[in-house]
Design a protein around this nucleic acid. Structure first.
Lengths: 134, 134
DNA sequence: CAGTATCCAACGGGATACTG
DNA sequence: CAGTATCCCGTTGGATACTG
């Protein structure tokens, strides 16, 4: 496997892993939200559980790989539950845990910030890039 | 230059750049916080302006490269100001703009979440990894 | 002091093909 | 349906050396 999950890497280096991340919780936070899609997944699951394919449609643009990987890492962190119903064909539901819901609050606050202030950020970028070019 | 900033890339592809990022503000938000250190920088500057070297000491673990790059991208986005005092030696101060301060609120909410819930995340990880190993 | 320049290893993540 | 397995390229970002 060329691309390995954090869990898989940990298998190879059992205890040294968490150590090389910074010790401050802010660093840990970044490790959590750093994954490009986890934020999307959490906010997608806010309104209720979804199936694998639902997530794919809801998020749109995510690759199959990330669509598996992101919920898995969130499952590892205890933020989402993954329920497999062994029917044929299989059915898998993802949902937020209580812990996951507790994160979705602050997360959506950030989302609101982005929505309300993004025009100003764009504006600033335009100015900055204009100055640089000139 | 091997590693190029977003601004520099934009110079080469003037208008197509923002288009290839998702159009939803959540995507944009990730583009903003995706940079590993921007969160740290914003929260470091919360209590007041700092000089380059202060930031380095405050954040600890950041490389010289990121210590320049992160504030720059935040400057581009209109979140921090960069003030150069042309003395000898030079002195550079970084500070949050009003926009930057408005972000620091939601951001610190997230930080609080990380601080209060991280033991539970660790716990979950331990369980998960234990099950995988077994 | 506050950067810039260069090099390069490692990780993220998309495309594609295959499976229980 | 919900993945897993491979391949592979682009970007991130650390180390190191040099500069106005």
């Amino acid at each position: 496997m060329a691309t390995r999950t954090a869990a898989q890497r940990r298998e190879e280096a059992p205890s040294a892993y968490d150590a090389f991340l910074g010790d401050r919780p802010t660093d840990q936070l970044l490790g959590l939200l750093g994954d490009k899609w986890v934020g999307l997944v959490v906010s997608a699951l806010r309104d209720g559980p979804m199936r694998y394919s639902d997530l794919g449609r809801r998020i749109a643009g995510v690759s199959q790989k990330m669509l598996t990987q992101s919920p898995r890492s969130l499952e590892r962190d205890g933020l989402v539950t993954r329920t497999v119903t062994p029917s044929v064909p299989v059915r898998v539901d993802y949902g937020l845990t209580e812990l996951g819901h507790s994160l979705s609050g602050p997360l959506s606050a950030l989302k609101v910030w982005a929505e309300t202030h993004f025009d100003r950020v764009h504006e600033a970028r335009g100015r900055y890039d204009g100055e640089v070019a000139a």
